[in-house]
Design a protein around this nucleic acid. Sequence first.
DNA 1: ATGAAAGCGCTAACAA
DNA 2: TTGTTAGCGCTTTCAT
Lengths: 348, 348
Amino acid sequence: MTPAPEEARLNIRTVAKRAGVSSATVSRVINGSSAVKEETAQRVRRIIKDLDFIPSPIAATLKYGRSKTYGVILPDLTNPFYPEFLVEFEKILVESNREMLLTTIQSHEAALINSVRRMLTRQVDGVLLMASEYETKAIEPLFDRKIPIVTVDRRKVERGTYDVSIEFENGYREAVMHLRNLGHRHIGFIGGNNEIGTSRVRLQAFRSALSFAGLTYEPNLTRMGDYRFAGGEAAVNSLLLEKKCPTAIITANDLTAFGAMKALHARGIHVPAQMSLIGFDGIQLGDAVHPRLTTAVISQRVFAEACVQALDRLKAKATKRGLLLRIPSSLLVRESTAPPRRAARLSP
Amino acid sequence: MTPAPEEARLNIRTVAKRAGVSSATVSRVINGSSAVKEETAQRVRRIIKDLDFIPSPIAATLKYGRSKTYGVILPDLTNPFYPEFLVEFEKILVESNREMLLTTIQSHEAALINSVRRMLTRQVDGVLLMASEYETKAIEPLFDRKIPIVTVDRRKVERGTYDVSIEFENGYREAVMHLRNLGHRHIGFIGGNNEIGTSRVRLQAFRSALSFAGLTYEPNLTRMGDYRFAGGEAAVNSLLLEKKCPTAIITANDLTAFGAMKALHARGIHVPAQMSLIGFDGIQLGDAVHPRLTTAVISQRVFAEACVQALDRLKAKATKRGLLLRIPSSLLVRESTAPPRRAARLSP
DNA sequence: ATGAAAGCGCTAACAA
DNA sequence: TTGTTAGCGCTTTCAT
């Protein structure tokens, strides 16, 4: 009355039986343990292939606690920066036989609580929090359960967290120097959302770049945006009301720059002839707009590698104290920058 | 010598013990079984909350076979259409307590095999194949294991597969009529990659729209692209070499239209004064470029709902024969279309 | 170098 | 309405 052996479910024991070994040995072969005689291993691998057997990491997770999955919490999937990052991040994980659990909060802080819960529920081995601007409270449960956490752009670490931050200083310095060398003296800035830490960091980096270039920071040439088109657009419209308009604008990210570009076009202001524009991120779109956007580029590959490495290290030695990793940025000059229309007055 | 009870692992039995019930009852409460006395259920829920207990779907998967996860195979995450889709798809799944396993093949067909393997490995309850243009062979293992498969834009079904297809006919018809009403008589078309089924469908839909509008299809005004900027750009450059240039161009998707727009700008051809342009998809970016793109819009919410529904139904009754769902598209008129510069000669 | 055996946390018959 | 029980497929000591 037992079911036909043909129909027996395919698992590690089926393989073991066929190979004339125990399931423990099969497990060892699957996990590449060196403690198996090569001959045996070969035979087992042969059978695995013949049977088209796929081991279940779910069972392994249950047994062993580790899911071989890293979670990612994104603030906003519609900013192309993140998909471009994810492609690299996924590639690295998959190469090493791990998975990615993607959650998106679409800028709703409330969704963060839910994301965290999903991470816990699915037993991820670590969380990459790219939405670091939000409340720490929501991620407490991760701390409590000692899940490795890597934040992005938070620029501070706590309780064994790692942080991967973009080195804005470089990029903005090169951007400002580039503009200064072209003859610009009055450079506007469109930042992110002021309530967010990373926005302040960007603005600060811009200001120190100005001073490095020997230019004065003019607060009335700075506007806040929202890291999206709309913010860039609105900011430009507001900037243009200033008596003394800038001859160039630098933004907190590329999306903001595109918004700015649109507003400038709409008002018949030519980029770069009448206004130079520099973004930050280096998203692919920058190469496709007209004029092609001059921008500070971050290598997504390098960025993703740093994130995975940070997660791996944190998982390996959970008690270590925090660590800050920096990802460099560097200026890519394209077509959205040019000398200012009227020669700037010579500096004193 | 037993470990301190304080340190006992938190599982369904811990909860059961505290609540003075059996683990089965706790399981029932968690899964919302109606066969539990409300009073008992309340007590159990109370304890779950107090203990901050999170049930493990991994164990449930192991036991029950279902992972409450749908897999998605995307051709290319850098086309904003997909992230915008994913946001909706994820939202729907999460609302109903399910997860999404995202894999990307970045247009490499070889990666499809790997994606399929990941789906099998993680025991997804179904697969949404948005990269349907690729070889059927690679997805055989899904068929073999009777995993529900929903394809997109394949427009045919087999062996209990469902297909969700975009209704290009509508959108293109409205697009062509819009142009015709503006006075256009010679409309160019930039398609996708010709080797791909969905490209042929789009071209066909365009042609039938032309004939519906009483216009003749002019094969020399058609070019193939690649669904990306580059393809649109190259296609325009080639189209402009034609003796009899079109006065308007319709594209296979928005990204292609952006590429076309860039090429036109680069050659000093004003959109829409000298050339009208219509895209397809309705990605957010279309609202941000200058001029804002007239395009046939697909509701991502509707699209995502259809996909989830198709997966759900297929899972519920696996033997049913195939089903085709159609997602409508409709024209959104913005600023990239206008009457042709010189009045077109009156039609005969 | 290999095997036996004890679960990981949960669900679903079946029994009560 | 609730409890008992037998695993789901795997890993990993501990033996041998």
